[in-house]
Design a protein around this nucleic acid. Structure first.
Lengths: 204, 204
DNA sequence: CCTAGATGTGTACGATGTCCACATCGATGT
DNA sequence: ACATCGATGTGGACATCGTACACATCTAGG
């Protein structure tokens, strides 16, 4: 019989199973055997597509990072055309931070995955071109701010690390730190304040 | 013979072994069997002192947090008496951030441990009284700033989260993120800049 | 001195990541 | 049409891990 001895697209199936499992039970629970079980396949089948558990996790992490980027871009593109280019540029930076934190709070499992995402040599690229990584989006957003004259070129130097530190740090505190227990709407309000003082520090 | 069948102070020995191992090989490598082996004792002996591996790790994490607090307090106390109370208060906040980041960069294994430190019910307290947790140190430092009139009471609201987000986020980027490869002195300079823009954002 | 509790040992079980040999399938060339 | 070969999936084995259970040993108090 032409049974399902061959799965068809095991690689994608494993990645997807990894995403659902990370979302449901956290990053640490990702395991070769459990993932293979979820897909209905022998544990060793996974080794035809990934060199090790670490490689699998890294690939899933890359997928999680893509979703983060898309969430950020969606929210930034939803920023209305403000009166001035300057206002719009600032509003887009604020949207970046809020989207980053919102993603972390609403999908903590996926967010934890994005933190594992390092340089990755693995397999074939996805069908659709990957979005730019969050870091690149941030750089572009800041460049747009100096172009809109809301930030001076010398004020621009190294500020990406201020932005990323603040936003990433808040996301950490909210998902794995002392803000874990805070209700989501309160977290969102606090995030808005924190990003506000960040923007104040960036002026001129 | 009064052999070493009983170890004497196995609990402390396990904690210390956990600290050295976390420092050398990272947090993820901490294991009951390996720690017991390092102390020269049967794996199950550890269970007389800790309910589980998780409990052991949490206890070691608490010890790491104490060292973080002491490192912060040391550096803050080394801040010289400035011309004004106001300058000194600001300088102490800056010292807090720099000490936090310096600890993370020089002892990444221990810093990763402090991130696991949650509320902990475990065993007997240490002989000497524990230092206040970093969060409390930060709160006191900020209160001193409003007392020194370098910050208004309404400006004080929620700023601890701005400070902690920035400093903790930078530490994360430097130890587990894209700044990992940066040479330590460059990291220190960048940290100084980032804390600078944070302080600018806190003004008034 | 003897007994009871605290502390350490040994064995065992289930689960995991990964290696190896083998089975099965789809495409390819004759 | 058919043999073959590479890609893909299976099964079994091994070392390691956390941890539970029964037992050994030491130390303190009556």
């Amino acid at each position: 019989m032409s049974s399902h001895y061959h799965h068809g697209d095991l690689r994608s199936a494993l990645i997807e199973a990894g995403m659902t499992m990370a979302r449901a039970k956290g990053v640490g629970t990702l395991g070769i055997r459990e993932l293979a079980r979820a897909v209905g396949v022998s544990p060793n089948a996974a080794y035809r597509h990934f060199a090790s558990l670490r490689a699998l996790v890294l690939t899933v992490a890359q997928e999680a990072q893509h979703r983060l980027s898309r969430a950020i871009l969606d929210r930034m593109d939803a920023v209305p055309g403000e009166a001035s280019q300057a206002e719009r540029a600032s509003a887009r930076l604020r949207a970046f931070g809020l989207a980053y934190i919102h993603f972390a709070v609403t999908e903590p499992g996926w967010f934890a995955l994005t933190c594992e995402s390092q340089e990755d040599p693995p397999g074939p690229l996805a069908t659709e071109p990957p979005p730019p990584p969050p870091h690149q989006i941030l750089l572009d957003t800041l460049d747009a701010m100096v172009e809109a004259r809301v930030m001076t070129p010398q004020g621009r130097v190294d500020v990406e690390w201020s932005c990323w530190s603040t936003v990433h740090g808040f996301a950490m505190l909210a998902t794995a730190g002392p803000l874990q227990a805070m209700p989501p709407d309160a977290t969102a309000r606090l995030a808005d304040r924190v990003i506000g003082t960040l923007l104040k520090g960036l002026q001129n």
